[in-house]
């Protein structure tokens, strides 16, 4: 059995989750504080991947990343980077596709914290960043873990978007879900079953780990 699609999938999910942590945490924090027209539009855009068919999202990303069009053309000419049918393209598409899974739980958890927690920190002379890292984030650990696992697991299971953006280049863009599809197309049910079982097992153990962690650590809504 060729394990390269599994390793590639795990690599894609890990990189996507790490990048989404860096992008998603500040974004969730910003969205959790107050309301405005810009925030409403931003939140609607972030939620779109949840409701749009992956092929629609993949199609627009394909257009955007295409070397013949705006962003893709600029990236190719300026940095000699081609996103279509490449691993970096998959990472970027996965970030867009999995963004709501990182933002949603973190934003909700931040909104549920009493406002007075942050206010108390400010009156102690602490900056917004110190307050975020020392007071707010540690008190939403279960939600943060849920967001990380959901993002990772969702990226593991991507199909439509990665197929549109990356196709099925072995070792480059052929992730596990694509490998399952290819194996079924070739009537190689044994390989399809092996990939599927591995994906199922990885995802199941991750979700179980979150349930166990949250059961023993979320003693109160704030912990």
């Amino acid at each position: 059995m060729d394990l390269s699609p599994i390793w590639l999938t795990l690599k894609l999910a890990a990189i996507t989750t790490l990048l989404l942590l860096a992008i998603g945490l500040p974004l969730a924090w910003w969205l959790s504080r107050g309301r405005s027209g810009i925030k409403l539009v931003t939140e609607a855009l972030i939620t779109m991947p949840l409701v749009l068919p992956p092929s629609v999202l993949g199609f627009y990303l394909l257009l955007a990343f295409s070397p013949q069009n705006g962003l893709g053309k600029w990236l190719l000419h300026t940095f000699d980077v081609q996103l279509v049918f490449s691993f970096p393209g998959l990472v970027l598409a996965s970030i867009v596709y999995s963004l709501p899974f990182m933002i949603g739980p973190v934003k909700s958890a931040l909104q549920q914290l009493p406002v007075s927690l942050a206010q108390a920190s400010y009156t102690l002379g602490k900056t917004e960043w110190q307050t975020f890292t020392c007071v707010l984030l540690p008190n939403i650990k279960p939600s943060l873990l849920t967001a990380i696992v959901l993002t990772f697991a969702h990226t593991l299971g991507e199909f439509g978007v990665v197929l549109m953006i990356g196709g099925s280049i072995p070792g480059v863009t052929r992730v596990a879900s694509i490998a399952v599809y290819d194996a079924v197309e070739q009537m190689d049910y044994s390989s399809a079953n092996n990939y599927s079982l591995l994906l199922f097992a990885i995802t199941f153990f991750m979700v179980m780990a979150v349930f166990i962690f949250n059961k023993y650590h979320a003693k109160s809504p704030l912990e």
């Binding site: 540690p138 109160s220 912990e223």
Partner: peptide, 13 residues
């Protein structure tokens, strides 16, 4: 300033 909040606003962590 020092502020004592009515709901204490203690940090659970």
């Amino acid at each position: 300033i020092g502020f004592v909040f009515q709901d204490y606003a203690l940090f659970p962590n």
